[in-house]
Amino acid sequence: MVSSERSSNRLIKQIGRRFSRRGWLLAFFALDLLIIYSISNNEKLIDAWSFVIRGIGVTVQITIWAFLFALVIGLITALGRISKNVLIYNIATFYVEIFRGLPLLVIILIFAFVVTPAIVDWIAQSPLDDLAQTIFGANPETITTTVLRTRDIDSVWRIMLAFALTYGAFMSEVFRAGIESIGHGQMEAARSLGMTYVQAMRFIVLPQAVRNVLPALANNFVFLLKDTSLASVVAVPEISQLTRQYSSNNFRYPEGLLVLSFIYANLTIVLSTIANYLEISLQAEKREG
């Protein structure tokens, strides 16, 4: 009797300890419910919600595409940064330092107003013009008589490279740290079995390195999601841009910003909670082997 009482006490303590570290999450969900309740009962908020939520597709589109590009760029750059080839190392490092050194906002402006027009001008004068117009969806009947113009290119794609290259630079450092966290003995063991450098990287080092940095990659994904709000400065119709539009049209800043914050917070907190569990389960796996 006494012992079962004690064990039930222990259970309560355990649950208490668990929840005491999750108070912020409970508070967040409570606030969430309150806001959902308000939005569904307030005409102004419903109005703001239905205007802003149209941008969610663009926000998600930029996030996912830029993240995928950044993964590839980051991995290649990381391999360049650990390369013994002096030329490759210096090119990779130059890229990383430049893109880490410039504010993302500035990079977005450069890509929207300098790089994209320059590329478009170059393509317009090249034989690729007709092909490019087809790709970017110009009217097929006018292609023979027109050239590619900057405005033919969807604003989302104008700033996509800015995000991909900036986050590629950040993520190359993540990958590099991951690769360097794998002891040199792994590479030596693989090479001593006759594997080439590329084979050893592919089968031995990278699989372990990527696992080690999965939580850091997930974090970068969350940061990228938040940073897509910067695309609003070049009028990309994502949720921040729509909020600015809605609010300044109707002088309803509180409503617009409440809805906007609600969307961002829910996306990021869900994602970072997933990242958290990923991290914990990976650590548990490591302990158990």
Partner: peptide, 28 residues
């Protein structure tokens, strides 16, 4: 790499591949 395939090496720190089972270690 051709010579290394003919020369087996065993290390002080074992250097097994931790993300693979014993069998996979020997197979790869």
């Amino acid at each position: 790499n051709k010579i290394r395939a003919e020369v087996g090496m065993v290390f002080q720190q074992f250097n097994l591949f931790p993300h693979k089972t014993a069998l996979e270690n020997v197979m790869l």
